[in-house]
């Protein structure tokens, strides 16, 4: 729940004229090693630092570009209630929400797409951390339920890339109820005999971690990703101890048996393709045909409807 400190504050600092170190943003500074990287090199290297290998945060659509074959299609999501509590802190939530929507060009923090990975048909959902810290409210819940239904409908594995500060406080208990809702989404996929793969990206915490994001058939994380339930500050205040080195990082979780794999961004596509192949194609064709690139974009599908609810 630390998207304010993680995201909003730096943004505000930028707005109020923190000295701009780099002209025209041709050079990026790695937040880990502080070395400068030329923007083209950074893009070519999938936003992984060419000096130290630090995996920088990327947006949901960039994530899709990096992972899916060309021609992936974004799915339109059903409308979720906007500001059901009419929540107001120092600002109105509805204003924050509209601002985030305008900035991101999407309704909420999750983008859902269908496409393929090295020719394997998949449905993918990716969190946009810059959208209110990727927090999970009704819109995010709706996106994940829709993605699950679509995966079942298309007989395709569901892959979710997470990046979230946790529940969206401004939706109160409605955001809490997205935990069981998204758990139901994972059940739909699993009951259809389809793989549900979670890729935990930096950072993933709180109610997102404690629901669908820990229920993958395969649990993958990007190197160095911060993953946990409680925030580090809260833990420190509660136990009054210094946190161990590398606490709540992907490698720490791997060591503690919570993850299957830590996979570098550059190897993510190949790893996902291999896993899907192993889970879904028990016998390999002797001479596998070369993976055909998708020539035409896949047809856009409407969001699947849920079952009718008895009155």
């Amino acid at each position: 729940m630390n998207w304010i400190s993680e995201w909003a504050l730096p943004k505000i600092k930028t707005l109020f004229g923190a000295p701009r170190e780099v002209p025209e943003n041709l050079w990026h500074k790695c937040p880990a090693c502080e070395q400068m990287i030329f923007h083209r090199d950074l893009e070519r290297n999938l936003h992984v630092c060419t000096h130290c290998g630090h995996h920088m945060r990327v947006g949901a659509r960039t994530r899709m570009d990096y992972t899916l074959d060309e021609g992936w299609q974004r799915i339109e999501l059903p409308k979720a209630p906007q500001d059901p509590l009419r929540f107001r802190d120092q600002r109105r939530y509805v204003e924050r929400l509209r601002e985030a929507q305008a900035k991101a060009g999407q309704e909420d923090a999750v983008v859902v797409a269908h496409g393929s990975i090295e020719g394997n048909r998949v449905v993918a959902a990716a969190f946009e951390f810059s959208f209110l810290g990727g927090s999970m409210g009704a819109g995010v819940g709706e996106a994940l339920v829709t993605a699950a239904r679509l995966a079942v409908l298309q007989d395709a594995p569901l892959i979710v890339f997470t990046a979230s500060g946790g529940a969206r406080m401004q939706e109160g208990a409605i955001s809490l109820m997205q935990m069981p809702r998204t758990v139901i989404a994972t059940r739909m996929v699993k009951e259809a005999g389809l793989p549900f793969i979670v890729v935990l990206c930096d950072p993933t915490t709180g109610g997102v971690t404690a629901s669908f994001a820990m229920l993958g058939d395969i649990q993958i994380a990007e190197p160095g990703a911060m993953i946990g339930f409680a925030g580090a500050r809260v833990i420190e205040q509660t136990v009054r101890e210094k946190l161990p080195e590398g606490f709540q990082r992907a490698e720490y979780l791997l060591e503690h048996g919570i993850l299957d794999l830590v996979v570098k961004r550059g190897e993510m596509r190949a790893t996902l393709a291999r896993l899907i192949g192993l889970l879904r194609t028990p016998e390999r064709v002797v001479a596998p045909p070369p993976a055909e690139p998708v020539a035409e974009p896949l047809p856009a599908l409407p969001a699947p409807e849920g079952p009718a609810v008895p009155a």
Partner: peptide, 10 residues
Amino acid sequence: PGIEAEARGQ
């Protein structure tokens, strides 16, 4: 919210 709780998969 504790270190051990996180380590054991809270």
